[in-house]
Simulated scan of single mutants.
Amino acid sequence: MSDDPTQVQEFFGTRAATWDSRFPDDGPAYTAAVGALGLRPGDSVLDAGCGTGRALPALRAAVGPQGTVIGADLTPEMLAEAVRAGRHLSGRLLLADVSGLPLRSGVLDAVFGAGLISHLPEPEENLRELARVVRPGGLLALFHPIGRAALAARHGRRITPDDLRAEDRLGPLLAASGWRMTSYVDEDDRFLVLAVHDG
């Protein structure tokens, strides 16, 4: 799929209504990935490219009632499904693109991005924008509920050497964007990369 924002919006817009029913068993994987971020009560966190908001309840549970949870997505239909599922009760929803977030610099403790990395139109610049809104020492989690090989197989493909999510490609990309990769896991049942903002 193209990483052009309009085409990404169209792709997810037409699939929004059935998105959750296509992946009904992902909840525990999201909860585990949020747990790996090590959020504390009172923290502020952004779910970048939140889609239907599947991570929002786990993020709210991690930061507690005093914390701040924001879900940002560029597809109105996905955000509408998040509201329909009641997940807007766990965080504030923003119609926004990660290329220019309507947030002040350094206001967040962490960013969570499920399935995000492969849809970024300008990966280095977009990751730099995520770093901008996170305080120095803040965290980034790039997550997918299945690993690269399983995801490629689901789409009838194989992993190619130019896969942006490969460890030897993603590490330097993160470093060039203000992040330092601290953990890389690519297994059949999850893809999870953790990084810290070095800014």
Rank of each mutant, 00 (worst) to 15 (best):
81 E>A: 07
196 V>S: 12
110 A>S: 07
75 T>D: 08
148 R>C: 09
98 V>A: 01
130 L>P: 01
23 F>Q: 13
165 R>E: 14
98 V>L: 01
165 R>H: 12
140 L>W: 01
133 V>H: 05
175 A>M: 03
175 A>K: 10
21 S>V: 15
180 R>W: 04
151 L>T: 09
50 C>H: 11
61 A>I: 03
53 G>P: 10
42 G>V: 02
179 W>A: 03
38 G>N: 10
125 E>A: 14
140 L>R: 00
63 V>P: 07
27 G>Y: 11
172 P>E: 10
78 M>L: 11
103 L>M: 03
112 F>R: 00
16 A>D: 07
147 G>T: 08
154 R>I: 05
105 S>P: 09
192 L>Q: 13
30 Y>H: 14
108 L>N: 05
75 T>C: 11
41 P>S: 14
50 C>D: 06
39 L>Q: 04
166 A>D: 15
126 N>Y: 01
186 D>S: 05
54 R>N: 13
185 V>Y: 03
188 D>M: 07
10 E>T: 15
125 E>S: 12
19 W>R: 08
58 A>C: 09
132 R>D: 04
60 R>K: 04
181 M>P: 13
185 V>N: 06
93 L>D: 11
91 G>V: 06
159 I>H: 03
126 N>T: 01
150 A>S: 13
127 L>K: 11
102 P>N: 12
79 L>M: 07
38 G>Q: 09
101 L>I: 03
75 T>V: 15
76 P>A: 12
113 G>I: 01
29 A>F: 12
70 I>C: 11
131 A>Q: 02
54 R>S: 12
100 G>K: 10
48 A>W: 00
97 D>N: 15
98 V>I: 14
133 V>R: 05
145 P>Q: 12
177 S>P: 08
64 G>H: 02
125 E>I: 01
82 A>V: 09
111 V>Q: 05
24 P>D: 08
161 P>F: 06
197 H>N: 14
163 D>W: 08
108 L>C: 07
59 L>A: 10
97 D>L: 10
116 L>G: 13
